[in-house]
Nucleic acid binder design. Structure first.
Lengths: 223, 223
DNA sequence: CCGATTCTGGACCCTGTAGTCCACCCGTTG
DNA sequence: CAACGGGTGGACTACAGGGTCCAGAATCGG
């Protein structure tokens, strides 16, 4: 169902229009993050953003369309926040400072909410449009981490593939750590997971580049 | 709202009753896992389980109560599945076989659905009852991993705290890996994350027990 | 075999929600 | 200062979904 979307989402043509659209997306983002997408009614969004139905449907084709905008906004927010730290990272110590900032932020939020992007995954991963948006967000995030790792390498660059892998594991550790932190209401899993990933990064970037740390085979071997 | 729950959930008193209750929970679990809790209507559950409204409300106080039962069931299923592998693990190589099995299973599911337990977290973590159930599930899972690690240690036991930490990181890696696998529709993040955690376990359990692998301080130091 | 009890079928109600529609406001432009 | 078009307010509709109820079937205990 819902075959022809495409048109219907006119972008605002006025400063005021831009403002309302932004207000709506911001309010929706907040509510959806804390209550889940399906549990957030459009009426609630409208009340929180002090807008009206017609305004919402003036800028968005339907709820799915709004959700897409929310995901994109969340991605931008997360990337902006983390980049503020990551861009200044030039050493392992800097990476650990970033770790501490993440942990501290999570603790401040009392481990509620989880990752602003990650918490959307389970609810949206089966609908193609928003899943792609989430994937783009994570890809960009990963790219930002790679940049930080390159800065850490400094004068002795490493194969890009290695850095990409390390960035992936760091991102996975962050997501898994946040997920467990959210359910156990403790930052400890997050701390452990991030430390593990960062320790590995430190090992790999310290000594001359080698693929694996040397153990039994059967890696990457399946089927 | 909804202050007095407690009573209202009579357990079945007949073989037939047990069967229907189980059918309902199983159907609900399947639907909720693939479509999300909020997106699963009771009508859909009833159709899938070939039961009727009155049956559902005969065994469950309300939807929340059903969700709780689903979470518990999922926890049992996951633990049973993984324990079938984990209980036979007595070496790092065994742990890697488990890893391969997990990856293969994920690939077979085309990376959809995510973790049977983890995918409920974002939607339920803010409602106290089900969050506790999820936390119990993860705690048990962690305990099972610790048991496997103890088996790996064999004759030279390690401090339990270390094993618990390692189990936590392994679980975090699994969850984060599955989450990224689900969004990117690729098992690679899962492989990398699990390998990282297992490599670390191999390191720690191979050589005489040391706390950290020796790098700059500022670990576990906050506030 | 009979009464009591558990279980089942499905019609019904009511609230909440996505989405529509139209009349009106207001800034801009000529 | 008109008139045009983007922007706004909110009433209204249609319907899906949670939850209730009761009559009747299956089953159990004696």
């Amino acid at each position: 169902m819902r075959i022809m979307r495409s048109i219907g989402t006119e972008p605002p043509r006025t400063a005021r229009g831009v403002a309302t659209r932004a207000r709506i997306v911001a309010a929706a983002a907040g509510l959806m993050r804390s209550s889940g997408v399906a549990n957030t009614s459009l009426d609630a969004v409208l009340e929180a953003s002090e807008a009206s139905k017609s305004q919402l449907y003036h800028y968005f084709a339907d709820k799915d369309d709004l959700v897409l905008a929310v995901v994109q906004r969340q991605a931008e927010c997360v990337l902006a926040t983390h980049n503020a730290h990551l861009q200044r990272v030039t050493s392992i110590a800097g990476l650990r400072r970033w770790r501490n900032a993440v942990v501290e932020l999570t603790r401040k939020e009392k481990c509620a909410g989880g990752c602003p992007l990650g918490s959307f995954v389970s609810e949206l991963a089966e609908s193609d449009g928003s899943r792609a948006a989430l994937a783009r967000g994570f890809a960009q995030w990963q790219a930002d981490i790679v940049t930080a790792l390159e800065a850490i390498c400094g004068t002795t660059p490493r194969p890009r593939a290695t850095l990409v892998e390390l960035a992936t594991t760091l991102l996975a550790a962050l997501q898994g750590g946040l997920l467990l932190a959210q359910t156990t209401r403790s930052v400890q899993p997050l701390e452990l997971a991030l430390d593990l990933a960062i320790d590995r990064i430190a090992e790999r970037l310290a000594r001359p580049s080698r693929r694996a740390s040397g153990h039994v085979g059967a890696r990457r071997g399946h089927r």
